[in-house]
Structure formats: structure tokens, C-alpha cells
Simulated assay, not measured.
Amino acid sequence: MSTRNSDSATIEDRILDAAADCVLAFGVDRVMLAEIARRAGVSRPTVYRRWPDTRAVLAALLTRRIVGVLDAAPSRGVGRAALVERIVTIAERLRADEVVMSVLRKAPDLAMVYIAERMGTSQQILLDAVAADIKLAQEQGSVRPGEPRRLAAMCLLITQSAIQSAQIVAPMLDADELAVELAHSLNGYLRP
């Protein structure tokens, strides 16, 4: 559902909302910058002043959606249980996000950059948030010793894999069962 008609939306928000609409309407591979601009009610140069190409617009869209999911799932306390609950909630919400999943499933070349080649902005933001929660949980004694960013990196890999591969194991693990198993994996990894 688009929010681009909101009076308070910035030009960037309108462009990213239009890009999301295009992803859902046409698929990632057929998103055109001209159509994004048309749906946002701006000129192509307005888009180009903010992003160099369609791929950059899509990367910004993914970052906004992923960070939005992170912001919508605040920590419910300090400790391993709260940390794992937050990570599992984020994973469930990302798996339910049509735009994020469309990119993962229908634009493997774009997704592969952030899976195998380099960390994206949203991954760095998630890593920082998880590392901060891990540090607090370590101080509380419910997470094992270790450099928080390293532990957070492994949590990111475990969770990212669960998100990407959920459809493969769907016949064996429905969404609820997947969440239980992801929580079990993370708890086992982080337990002192």
C-alpha cells in the first residue's frame, strides 16, 4: 500500500514509494526510472539528482523498508531473550514485506550483491543495533563473551539465511515453526 499521497511526504519518500509501487506492479527487472518519476509526480532529473540510476533507487528503497522494520520492532528489554525475540520479529516482518521478498526472489543479481559480495547500508544498521543489544545482554550475563560485532555478524548471517531460504523449507517448517527454530538457533549460539 502506497503512502505517497501523504501531504507530509518528502520528494524522496514519494520517489521511494513510487519505486515500491513499480516493484509490485512490474517486478524488479522491469522497473524503469521514468515510470518511478511519473508515479512520484516528479521529473526524471529530480530523481537523478538524488540517485544515479534505478538500481540505486531500489537499494535506497530496500534500506528504507528494512530500517523501517527495525524501528518498528524496538527492544523489549535487556538480555538474550529480548534480543532473540527482536531478531525473530524482524525476520518475520521482513519475510512478510512484499517488496523485500520480491527483490530476493525476482532480482537475484541485485540481492546477491548484499548476500555474497558486500554489506549494504541496512545490513550495517542491523549489525549495529544487534551488536548494541548483545553488549547490553553480555553486561547482564545472558549472552556469552565475545566481541559484540562479531557475534552480531553471525546472528545476521543465521537470520539472513532463514529469511532467504524459508520458502525452500516451507513444506517442513511453516512460518511459526521457522520462527521457533530460528529462535532456538540464535539462543544456542548466544547462550553463555
Rank of each mutant, 00 (worst) to 15 (best):
R4K: 13
R4C: 01
S6F: 05
D7I: 03
S8V: 05
E12S: 13
I15M: 07
L16R: 01
A19S: 11
V23P: 02
V23C: 04
V23S: 02
L24N: 02
F26T: 10
G27Y: 07
V28M: 00
D29K: 12
R30S: 09
R30T: 05
M32F: 12
M32N: 10
E35F: 01
R38W: 07
A40V: 04
G41S: 09
G41H: 08
G41A: 07
R44K: 14
R44F: 03
R44C: 03
P45A: 11
T46W: 02
Y48V: 02
W51E: 00
P52R: 15
R55P: 01
V57C: 06
V57R: 00
L61K: 09
T63W: 01
T63P: 00
T63C: 08
V67D: 14
G68R: 05
V69S: 03
L70V: 13
A73T: 15
G77T: 06
R80E: 04
R80G: 01
A81W: 02
A81S: 13
L83S: 06
L83T: 12
E85H: 09
E85A: 15
I87E: 06
V88L: 03
V88C: 07
I90L: 08
E92D: 15
R93V: 07
A96G: 15
E98W: 09
E98D: 15
V100F: 12
S102W: 01
R105N: 14
K106N: 15
A107F: 07
Y114T: 01
I115L: 14
I115D: 14
M119S: 14
M119A: 14
G120N: 12
L127E: 11
L127Y: 06
D128V: 02
A129W: 02
A131Y: 05
D133R: 05
D133Q: 10
L136Y: 00
E139H: 09
E139V: 08
Q140F: 02
G141F: 09
G141N: 09
S142R: 00
V143G: 00
R144D: 10
P148V: 07
P148S: 11
L151H: 01
L151K: 01
M154E: 10
M154H: 13
C155L: 05
C155A: 15
Q160K: 12
A162T: 07
Q167L: 12
A170H: 13
P171N: 10
P171M: 04
M172N: 06
L173R: 11
A179H: 07
E181A: 08
L182F: 09
A183G: 15
N187L: 04
N187E: 15
L190V: 10
R191D: 13
P192D: 09
P192H: 08
P192Q: 05
